[in-house]
Each structure stands twice: as C-alpha cells, then as structure tokens.
Amino acid sequence: MGDVLPFHFQVVAALIFAIGALGVMLRRNMIVMFMSIELMLNAANLSLVAFSREIGNDQGQILAFIVMVVAAVEVAVGLAIIISLVRNRDTVNIEDTSQMKW
C-alpha cells in the first residue's frame, strides 16, 4: 500500500475516537451526544480492522461485525429512550434530565 503503514490507520482511528469523546463531554444535546458515541464505536471498528489486516487474520473483522450489531441495537433502544424522554419532559438538553442524579 505504498508508504501508508498500519500506524497511519491507527492514528485516524485515534483522532475519530478523540473527536467522539469530546462530543460526549462538550455537547449538551442528547442526540448529538448519541451520534458522538457512534463515532467512538466506529473508531474502535477501524482500529480492529486495521490490526486485523496488520496481522493477516480475519478475526478482527468478525469482532467489528459483532460491534456493528451491538451498535445497531443500542441505537434503536437509545433513540426510543430519547423519544420517550422528549414526550414526557419536552427537552433534549441533558442538563434538564436530572431526576436520576443523586
């Protein structure tokens, strides 16, 4: 692959993960925070696939596939929770949903 090394893919994955983590920490909109979690899951997937190619074994790809299944379920349940929160409290700002705070 020319002068692109496995290392470069890992750096891209690290950058995307960091952006996702920043999104969860900085944004207060629940839906955007949820998208940031998706970004982090995708960064982990990229890392898995790149390591899998680096050692020439396809187990990492299978793990990435399972991560995608879990992410799909998580999105369905999470968005259902957000819908029900908006119906009951009429807000997507995470600061307004503090009834589970101790």
């Binding site: 950058l15 995307i16 952006i19 996702g20 920043l22 999104g23 955007v32 998208m35």
Partner: peptide, 10 residues
C-alpha cells in the same frame, strides 16, 4: 473526509 466530517458532527 472521515476526520473532517467527524468534526462536523460535533
């Protein structure tokens, strides 16, 4: 593209 649009998401 991936990193730039990830920044766009956040």
């Amino acid at each position: 593209m991936a990193v730039g649009s990830a920044l766009g998401v956040v």
